[in-house]
Simulated scan of single mutants.
Amino acid sequence: MVLEVDIEAFAAARERGALVVDVREGFEFAAGHVPGARWIPLGMLAESLADLPRGRAVMVICASGNRSKAGAVLLTRAGFDVASVQGGVAAWSLSGRDLTVRTS
């Protein structure tokens, strides 16, 4: 079972230094993402485990929460302290928080 957190718990974890991993596709990430999020598409997450810090909370986010659950399962099985963000980037944006848009 994967831990899921709502937007308020996610925002608090992010402020405490949790790593935010966005598992959406590149065009989605470029269109708008949580500031400071690290982009690792879900299909590349398994091969990117060595690049993720151990001993730091990881919050996995996607568009609405479905892909992030899959990513959180993978990371949980690999021994990470991880949670999936309910509602994803859509919920983040709907809560009135800013998104970063990649312009290049």
Rank of each mutant, 00 (worst) to 15 (best):
M1A: 15
M1W: 13
V2S: 14
V2M: 14
L3K: 15
L3W: 01
L3V: 15
L3F: 11
L3E: 14
E4K: 15
V5M: 12
V5E: 05
E8N: 05
A9I: 06
A9Q: 11
A9D: 10
A9E: 08
F10R: 04
F10S: 04
F10H: 00
A11F: 03
A12T: 13
A12L: 15
A12S: 12
R14A: 12
R14H: 12
G17E: 07
G17D: 08
L19C: 08
L19E: 08
L19S: 07
V20T: 07
D22Y: 07
D22C: 09
V23E: 07
E25G: 07
F27P: 00
E28Y: 01
E28N: 01
F29I: 05
F29R: 04
A30D: 07
A31C: 06
V34S: 02
V34C: 00
G36M: 05
A37N: 07
R38E: 12
R38I: 11
R38C: 09
I40Q: 00
I40D: 04
G43A: 09
G43V: 07
M44W: 10
M44I: 00
L45Q: 01
A46H: 12
A46I: 09
E47S: 07
S48C: 04
D51Q: 11
D51M: 08
L52S: 05
L52V: 02
P53M: 10
R54W: 00
G55L: 03
R56Y: 04
A57D: 15
V58G: 04
M59V: 12
M59F: 11
M59L: 15
V60D: 01
V60H: 00
I61V: 15
I61H: 00
C62V: 06
C62W: 02
A63M: 13
A63T: 12
S64C: 00
G65L: 05
N66D: 15
R67E: 10
R67F: 09
R67L: 11
R67V: 07
S68R: 00
S68Q: 00
K69I: 13
A70L: 07
G71S: 03
G71K: 00
A72D: 02
V73P: 00
L74D: 06
L75A: 13
T76Q: 15
T76M: 13
T76D: 13
T76W: 07
G79T: 08
G79C: 11
F80S: 03
F80E: 03
S84M: 08
S84C: 11
S84I: 01
S84L: 06
V85R: 02
V85L: 13
V85P: 01
Q86P: 12
V89W: 00
A91G: 06
S93T: 11
L94T: 14
R97T: 09
D98S: 14
D98Q: 13
L99F: 02
L99C: 05
V101Y: 08
V101E: 10
V101G: 07
V101W: 05
V101S: 10
R102S: 10
R102A: 09
R102I: 13
S104M: 12
